[in-house]
Simulated assay, not measured.
Amino acid sequence: MLKVALLARLEAKPGKEADVEALLKGALSLADAESQTPVWFAIKLGPSSFGIFDAFADESGRTAHLNGQIAAALMAKAPELLAKPPQIDKVDVLAAKVSG
């Protein structure tokens, strides 16, 4: 059961929108490799606004993800690609439906 999640909001610098989109699309293989990350979405909210939503069974999964390769890659590229630091919120999952 999914209990905790992360919601990250990203705002691309002008002219860097395609680079942020490519970074997020490329991160899917890293998310697939994380055994404690059963749900991971990269989303586009607007022309220069993006997000990541991922959910976990428990706090250990969320912590592992925050210390993982996706977060490291995002933080390494943030000064180059983002207009401001990512806003990352720890949130609780109240209800979920995930099916293939």
Rank of each mutant, 00 (worst) to 15 (best):
L6V: 10
F41C: 07
L82K: 11
F50H: 06
I70G: 09
E80M: 11
S48Y: 04
F56R: 01
G61W: 00
A27F: 04
D92L: 14
M75E: 14
P86K: 12
E17L: 11
K84I: 06
Q69R: 14
H65F: 02
D19R: 15
K77I: 01
V98K: 08
E21G: 09
I52E: 10
H65M: 04
A72F: 06
E34Q: 06
E17V: 13
W40N: 12
L28A: 14
Q69W: 02
A22T: 04
V39W: 15
E80I: 11
L28Q: 12
L74H: 09
V93A: 06
V98Q: 15
L10T: 11
K90M: 03
P79Q: 10
F50L: 06
A12I: 05
A64R: 01
R9K: 14
E21K: 10
S35I: 00
A5F: 12
D54I: 05
P86T: 11
A64F: 02
E21V: 05
A96F: 04
A72C: 04
K90V: 14
G61R: 00
L30T: 05
L23F: 10
N67K: 08
A8H: 04
G15R: 02
D54H: 12
D58K: 00
A72R: 14
D89K: 06
T37I: 02
Q36C: 03
M1Y: 06
P47N: 15
E59F: 00
H65D: 11
S29E: 15
A27M: 12
K84S: 15
I52T: 07
A64C: 02
N67Q: 10
D32P: 01
